[in-house]
């Protein structure tokens, strides 16, 4: 559909550029200010920096305990990701490719979650976690976030597995493999593309999870990166240490940027499956 470019195209082009600027400008502004010093920032926000203060990043790292928070985040996200993805995969297999009594009931119960707003469960969930002595614990948070069912992920992986030919499993059984071996050696490797999509979205969901860590973690030494940035911002009222705060936010963004750079295609394709922010 090649058509002549007219004056109105300039307007459309300007619109596209305008939205791009709306996205980029705040990010670049924060990045730029994160390299300045507080006095010069307070004096004139638009001034060019005399020197680049990369020290701000080191200061943020130490002052906000980002190193420790990153380790906590790595533990929480890493273990939940591996455990949760494995459980989702094996559940998708059991619930879509094995016929057993009660399967329909299980699906119905899982589908029920679509109608439940998460917020109603927050309080009883907290009381339950408290009774199980799992509050203020990263491991408790891992259990809470990886033991469960997610309709979207189950359907995504289930749909993927349904497309694998039945003969694959049967030939495995004829060769004397157990069902465990069939799952690990045949189904799991063949489902990798679907598993990767699920894992990427689990990563984004876990890394971006603010409410869970915010509710359950009370010791500063256990904070994840999101909660520690929140606490740092609360302190800002008293310290007014802007440039360090900017550097901290930039650091908190790095894992998301890396993920997006490497998995951009997967993320953008997967997002339209309705699996994100459902």
């Amino acid at each position: 559909m090649r058509e002549k470019r007219t004056i109105i195209d300039v307007v459309w082009w300007v619109l596209l550029i305008a939205w791009s600027m709306a996205i980029l400008f705040p990010l670049l502004w924060v990045f730029y200010q994160s390299l300045r010093s507080n006095p010069s920032f307070f004096q004139d926000v638009w001034a060019l920096p005399e020197s680049l203060n990369w020290m701000n990043y080191k200061n943020a790292w130490i002052k906000y305990g980002i190193g420790n928070a990153m380790l906590n985040t790595l533990y929480y996200v890493g273990v939940s990701l591996v455990l949760g993805t494995f459980l989702t995969t094996i559940n998708a297999y059991a619930l879509t490719r094995i016929q057993f009594k009660g399967r329909k009931l299980m699906w119905a119960l899982i589908m029920l979650s679509l109608f439940l707003p998460g917020i109603n469960a927050l309080i009883p969930q907290y009381v339950l976690m408290r009774e199980l002595h799992l509050t203020n614990s990263l491991t408790g948070l891992i259990l809470l976030d990886s033991l469960g069912e997610n309709v979207f992920f189950l359907m995504l992986l289930g749909g993927f597995m349904r497309s694998l030919p039945k003969e694959l499993e049967e030939s495995g059984f004829l060769d004397g493999a157990s069902i465990f071996q069939v799952f690990m050696r045949i189904i799991f490797p063949l489902s990798i593309p679907g598993i990767v999509t699920v894992a990427i979205f689990k990563f984004l969901g876990l890394y971006n999870n603010f409410l869970g860590p915010f509710i359950y973690l009370s010791d500063q030494s256990k904070y994840t990166i999101g909660v520690s940035m929140y606490a740092a911002n609360q302190m800002m009222q008293y310290t007014s240490d802007w440039v360090t705060m900017f550097a901290g936010v930039m650091i908190a963004m790095v894992p998301s940027i890396i993920m997006f750079m490497f998995f951009q295609r997967w993320i953008m394709e997967g997002a339209t499956l309705g699996a994100v922010k459902g």
């Binding site: 459980l87 989702t88 979650s113 009883p124 033991l147 069912e149």
Partner: peptide, 14 residues
Amino acid sequence: PAFGGYLLFTLYPN
């Protein structure tokens, strides 16, 4: 593990 967790941490609290 997963379905039990779902019953315990999602359905039961709701």
